[in-house]
Design a protein around this nucleic acid. Structure first.
Lengths: 245, 245
DNA sequence: CGGCAGTTTGACTAAATTCAATTGCAGTGG
DNA sequence: CCACTGCAATTGAATTTAGTCAAACTGCCG
């Protein structure tokens, strides 16, 4: 089993130089790790959580509930992400969190986090930066779902997930776990399920990628990037070279 | 002329209890105020700003540049907002900022802000909270532009702007300044200009609102809210009663 | 074997985009 | 004062696109 502390430190270290004292502070936090079943909603819209979640392994989604009973997926999170940093400062959750496939999530009491923030301001700033990263990804989602045609929209999502997974070292060869259904893809990209299927079929036919058995396979990165009009600048990743192929 | 310090303090005080020392620290910051012409881009995508902006008066927009040459507007900001808190931690702007009508914007050196954050952690947390608010608004925009039909989408935007403007005391009677063109509305909501016009005409005909001479007029708030499927929970405003009518 | 959930496909419908043309208005220069 | 220009708003018609609806197919589990 992966260590919650380690994935968090690995993620924060991507952009912030943490001192030994910062690391000690992080390691001293109480992480309560828990396995989450596929499609389990482990934080609900309306909750007033006392803990922050950390994705240790697997994939976690954030979503709005719609009046119609459906969902709008807002973002996906992978190992090292803090998917509900929102909850630190804002009383009531305006969205829910669920697992896509099996996931392992660690919970940290807000109280402890705030204490750590006071003692180690650099730690606070690094988590703040994480939340800004988040916002940047939301912005790109607005543009993606509003301004790009269906095929580009879908390709862009795959590019983003692949790129981020790569930074988190979750890629094996040219594939990684993405246990998402067509319905969920539709509720992410704002398209009807029939359109999702047809668009995905087109992408597959194009030969740049495939999605099978809950795995995304990127066959031609450059091509997929072109189709998705994807420029990774908004992810603000440092020292990252583009995938080969 | 309004004081930059005051609008910032008013805004932060909405959600955070700032002590006298916090206020002193804020008042000691160097604000360089500047008038911005309508549609002037005062921060560009790709810039590496050394200052943070604060909207003192008027309205400011954030946007992505599209490959096609068009824009995707991401959010609108009013008096008291910090529209590029993003830039505090992230090297390069992934979006630009422009004024809608005439606006007055104050700039604060990042260096000073960071010093103030170290000295007054509560101030830092209040600005952090602002950035989370921002993210919450982005999330709602994803849902709005992805999951709501055209008329609801437009009504929702008007509801949000009206509600926020009201919290910032920018409403005179039932109207407030919203100097936005149809093209910009389309680039916000992800619709073609013809559709914008027709949808807006429908809304006007419905009698719940009007948009004239750069002013939004809300005639039937409840009706507009219903049409826009608008629930203000995501704005996380405290002590706010809904508008009458 | 029979359900069940997720996927795939086709035919039809509804909706928004595109394109083109017109109007209204403010500013410019003769 | 008036023509002329440019920009934003408006409208209509044709086209394209995605959504809806329904049906079949798949693999999996009991």
């Amino acid at each position: 089993m992966e260590k919650a502390h380690d994935v968090l430190i690995r993620n924060l270290s991507e952009h912030t130089a943490l001192t030994g004292e910062d690391l000690d502070e992080i390691r001293a936090l109480t992480f309560t790790q828990r396995d989450v079943a596929p499609n389990e909603d482990f934080i609900r819209q309306g909750d007033e959580p006392e803990h922050s979640a950390l994705v240790v392994s697997g994939m976690v989604a954030r979503y709005h509930l719609l009046g119609s009973g459906g969902r709008q997926y807002l973002a996906f999170h992978i190992s090292g992400d803090l998917p509900d940093s929102q909850g630190l400062f804002i009383d009531q959750m305006d969205h829910g969190l669920s697992a896509l496939g099996h996931a392992s999530v660690a919970f940290i009491p807000h109280r402890e986090l705030f204490t750590a923030f006071r003692r180690r301001p650099t730690f606070a700033l690094s988590v703040w930066r994480e939340t800004l990263l988040d916002a940047s990804i939301f912005r790109e989602a607005i543009t993606n779902n509003s301004a790009r045609p269906m095929q580009a929209r879908m390709a862009h999502l795959f590019c983003e997930l692949f790129y981020r997974a790569r930074a988190a070292q979750l890629i094996r060869g040219n594939r990684f776990r993405l246990p998402i259904s067509l319905v969920q893809l539709g509720e992410t990209l704002g398209m009807a399920i029939a359109t999702v299927n047809r668009t995905l079929a087109d992408l597959r036919r194009g030969g740049a990628m495939d999605l099978r058995d809950g795995e995304l396979i990127v066959l031609k990165w450059r091509e997929l990037q072109r189709l998705g009009d994807f420029s990774p600048a908004y992810l603000h990743l440092k020292r990252q070279s583009p995938p080969e192929t």
